[in-house]
Write a protein that binds this DNA or RNA. Sequence first.
RNA 1: GGAGGCGUAGUGUAGCGGCUUAACAUGCCGGCCUGUCACGCCGGAGAUCGCGGGUUCAAAUCCCGUCGCCUCCGCCA
Length: 602
Amino acid sequence: METDSLGDWRRTDYCGRLNARDAGRDVVLAGWVSNRRDLGSLLFVMVRDRTGEVQLVFDREADADLWERARSWRNEFVVAVQGRLRERSLETVNPDSPTGSVEVEPSEVRLLNTSSNPPFYIQDDLDVEEGLRLKHRYLDLRRPRMQRNLVLRSRVNQAIRQFLEARDFCEVETPYLTRSTPEGARDYLVPSRIAPGEFYALPQSPQLFKQLLMLSGLDRYYQLVRCFRDEDLRADRQPEFTQLDLEMSFVGIEDICTMVEELLVQLFHRTRGVCVETPFPCLTYRDAMDRYGSDKPDLRYDLEIVDLSSAVRDSEFRIFSQTVDGGGSVKGLVLPGGADTARSRLDAWEEAAKSWGAAGLIWMAWDGNPLEGADAVRSPVAKFLSDADVRAIARGADAGAGDLLLVVAGERAGTNRILGRLRVQLAEELDMVPDDDRLEFLWITEPPLFETDDAGRMTSVHHPFTAPCAEDEELVDADPLAVRSAGFDVVLNGVELASGSMRIHRQNLQQRVFSVLEMDEDIQRERFGFFLDALEYGLPPHGGIAFGMDRLVMMIAGECSIRDVIAFPKTTAARDLMTRAPSKIDREQLRELALKIQREES
RNA sequence: GGAGGCGUAGUGUAGCGGCUUAACAUGCCGGCCUGUCACGCCGGAGAUCGCGGGUUCAAAUCCCGUCGCCUCCGCCA
């Protein structure tokens, strides 16, 4: 099909911004045909650009030649049109469209490019396999909703920069080709051509660089920076992701937190027009685990974990009393009005709890008034419980008639974890998560500094540069697992949005922490020598935080997957279906990098 | 590494041993239509049922394997 050149035509307006106030003007528009309605000698064509769409009207009686040309247009053809914008007559106004009060009467049109029929409709309420969207991402991104998300993301970035620049933060770029520092996630590695057999690692975060910038005296640093972690993917996790990384010198936790709250208030106000309340509620890690069984609890619903340990300490039911005797916990969740829950569902919950490591899940349903004692409750263990037990449990759980109590007994941390997962599942299954735009921010503070991994080795909960709480510093060598860190996370609706901490700024403490992590001096020198050297030259007290930008934008956009706010994301197998990366490389490239591919064992 | 779900015209689904020449919707192509906006009406084309193997007289349908996508667990300092 023959196409025209744009020539000297220049767009005067974006389609989506036209309204009745513009009526009477001559306009030049350019965009993609989004829809045609051919009524015979009358033809309506919608033209779409980044901002929206507007209707063109071609009338054979008005201009047979133009009408004939427009009739050959198909969806997604690229067109430019020159014409008069006119107000629609009252009966023909479309109240559902932002530009529904106007239409364009073209005087001349140019077909700038044709298009094959796209594999899916370019419209918002589409329901196609995500793989197909990713393969044709450039078309997926033509959808208004995706464009809105990209524009939103740009605005968020802009608002962040403006906020931080106004507070004397300085954006510094740090290297992507850097040194592998084992610990933490798997590195993405880049072979060096010039140094055969040696590798760069892509940064898991600019952590050490930003601390060194504090040493340099930059005082306040930030960066919107790509980070890389070679771990398995999730709906909220990509192998390359963007962080808002920032660091401040001569501050305490509260300075960083206050500033972050102000930033979030401004961000949500500017981009979504909502008021975020500050200060955010604050939970210690321990409280969060005890009350919600999670270090990122969703506070949009209650369903708090109740501790029944003291209520059942002297219970005749041995499983309860012995658990408490042995230092464990008996805890539960109360479902108000849940007494009539179907047996099959209770069984399914027990199965789930067992799959998470629970010895069992005991349910107690109060059909009558709990004060009546054992007669009022139905439970598989009812026969083991005395009247006094049942009353004490009901009191401890604050359960009333019609309520259901789900109980797990066992070691404290495990019990919390299991109930925490059950809490999330119950909330989803029973529709307890409000579907309004509620935003429940909170801080989680004082997480442990260390934990042990499966093999019993000591590892950092956050990273090895996190400072311990001042009052716990003495415990670092003596009882490392008891040490609380000066770390803090921002949680929003059950999603970890940001994680920060005060950092270690004295070499001696840093070395003690490395030692706890079972790194002897040789290993410390080999892995972090440059950093330990630097610590001799006056590192100021400092701390910082890093936001997951993909998650943040996802939350602001109201999307459920970070893939919907990333222009070109990867699948759960870390593939790019559009470019088909990763891909094999040719022998010559391998040779140049001094690499050999080991044949797969079959 | 593990668990689950999905895979059938361009797209979204139905069919789940033989009533199928694989159905429906939408998109696409053609025709008709002067106020549509999910336009409408009429007609048409379009599918090696993801791939490979097996069971069976007979497989889209059952079994095994494999690939791809999604969700979750492990993992993500």
